[in-house]
Simulated assay, not measured.
Amino acid sequence: MLVLVVYCHPVETSFHAALHEEVVRNLRAAGHEVDDCDLYAEGFDPVLSREERLGYHEVPSNQIPLKPYVERLQWAEGIVFCFPTWCFGLPAMLKGYFDRLFMPGVAFDLRDPQNVKPMLTNIQRISAVVTYGRPRWVAWYMGDPPRKIVTRYMRRLTGKQARVDYHAHYHMNVATEPQRRRFLARVGSAMARFA
């Protein structure tokens, strides 16, 4: 399978960096072709400019500023997001990736606004590896936007055909080393079975 890994964390010594490495290593060991998109390392600009917003609906010229990222997304058969939850949402860098890249002509067909059609039908498999600083009940109380973006919004953009899983480690603020090791192993096993 052709798998796009979208990784978003600025610190190379973080637990999330170890999770990212585990994701990529196990996907490759399982025989998948992996495009490893490290948003911070690549210097991705998350800011939707005035010009981009004004041309947002102008297909296909709206894709010109992000052509390489559009091609990578359209290439993928599977996608794995690897990110921390900050302020109960996506990190700004990843939110900007969604804001700029998931546009008309790429993620959805908006020619008939009453009948929006999904365009990421090339993606058959979606997964996410996510950490939270707070317990699960607090994320639930806050509505858990990251989980909804991955399990609902992303799946909808595939025409509701993609299989989705979501691997979350809650309460990272007090996680012990054995808890982190267990989650790392769980993520590795999930990626080894990714199909």
Rank of each mutant, 00 (worst) to 15 (best):
M1P: 07
V5N: 01
P10V: 11
F15E: 08
V23R: 00
R25A: 10
R28H: 03
E33R: 14
V34G: 00
E42Y: 01
L48D: 02
L48I: 01
E51T: 12
L54T: 10
G55I: 04
N62F: 06
N62W: 03
Q63C: 12
P65T: 05
L66S: 09
Y69P: 04
Q74F: 07
E77P: 00
I79E: 07
F81S: 03
C82R: 00
T85A: 07
C87Q: 14
L90T: 08
M93A: 02
G96C: 04
G96Q: 02
Y97P: 00
F102A: 08
G105P: 00
G105Q: 02
G105W: 02
D109C: 07
R111V: 08
D112A: 06
D112L: 08
V116R: 11
K117C: 07
P118Y: 09
T121Y: 02
R125V: 04
V130K: 01
V130D: 02
T131D: 03
T131I: 06
W137D: 14
V138L: 15
M142D: 08
G143Y: 06
P146M: 11
I149M: 11
Y153H: 13
M154T: 11
R155M: 07
L157R: 09
Q161G: 08
Q161W: 01
A162V: 05
H167E: 00
H167F: 04
A168M: 05
Y170V: 10
H171G: 12
M172P: 00
N173P: 03
A175P: 00
E177W: 01
R180P: 05
R181S: 14
F183T: 04
F183R: 01
A185I: 05
R186L: 11
G188M: 05
A190V: 09
